[in-house]
């Protein structure tokens, strides 16, 4: 007995049952905390991760559309995973349209009438947000607020005073939707190319009519005014009323309007 005391003096006062209780309490507290607070947090993270993944996927799809339209690639295919929501194609004949674009000049010459882009929309099941690929741009919406994640390729060349407007419309055989893993197959349809000489100093107007429910007008308003330097004549973006917004184009001596049809073969 005396020998043992000398060998292990530091085990004095150590009780197995108290140790067991301590460890047990710690474990239970840990599990409790994770279930009560960690799990809801994790679910929230999962939703936002699903959304971010879809934002990324939409940009990939936008690049596909770019290849089809601007590089005259005939066909593109992309596999993607759609989580926490559904990807739906509302083609350009779908009513109500996501948006309508009309371009005309002050003399009443009409360049484009009621162009409907159609859109490829991801609606999140729980977060109440939508990410949409429309008219060559990727936009995100929550209620009436919206933001443009990737811009379409419209551009103004200052040296030649040329404004190039690329309108992309999505068509498909009816309404299609997909959840889970799927392949988006796209093909290039008809294209149209118009080149107008606009040196006559007549103002040109672009009218953007949003849908009253799926209202992406804030994103488009920002893009048209900040990036392309247009000025807004009438209308309020994000009003949710579906009222048209009218913009005046910057001074151009040449207006190029290109229209592309992208056919969604399957989702």
């Amino acid at each position: 007995m005396t020998k043992r005391k000398i060998q292990a003096p530091c085990t004095e006062g150590v009780s197995e049952s108290i140790g067991f209780l301590l460890i047990f309490t710690l474990m239970m507290a840990g599990i409790g905390l994770v279930t009560l607070y960690g799990y809801p947090l994790l679910m929230q993270q999962q939703t936002s991760a699903d959304e971010q993944i879809m934002e990324k996927n939409m940009i990939v799809l936008q690049n596909d559309v770019k290849s089809l339209a601007y590089k005259t690639v005939p066909y593109k295919e992309t596999s993607l995973k759609i989580g926490g929501g559904a990807l739906t194609i509302y083609n350009s004949h779908h009513t109500p349209p996501a948006s309508k674009i009309t371009i005309r000049d002050a003399n009443g010459v009409i360049f484009v009438t009621d162009f409907r882009s159609g859109d490829l929309t991801y609606s999140s099941a729980s977060a109440n947000t939508e990410v949409s690929l429309q008219n060559g741009a990727v936009v995100k919406r929550q209620n009436q607020g919206s933001v443009m994640l990737a811009e379409p390729r419209w551009f103004y060349d200052g040296q030649t005073k040329t404004l190039v407007i690329n309108l992309v419309n999505l068509t498909s055989n009816g309404l299609m939707a997909r959840d889970g893993i799927g392949t988006v197959q796209m093909a290039l349809g008809e294209t149209r190319f118009d080149n107008y000489d606009t040196t006559g100093l007549v103002p040109i107007y672009l009218t953007y009519t949003p849908d009253s429910v799926k209202d992406y007008s804030v994103a488009w308003d920002n893009y048209l005014r900040q990036t392309l330097g247009m000025s807004r004549n009438s209308g309020t973006p994000g009003s949710g009323t579906g009222q048209p917004l009218e913009y005046e184009l910057p001074q151009t001596s040449r207006l190029v309007i290109k229209q592309y049809e992208v056919i969604i073969r399957s989702l």
């Binding site: 339209a69 601007y70 005259t72 390729r153 040296q159 030649t160 190319f193 080149n195 190029v256 290109k258």
Partner: peptide
Amino acid sequence: RNLSLSRHNAVVE
């Protein structure tokens, strides 16, 4: 000029 605009989507001057 026309071909660059229609095929390459580029303004050439």
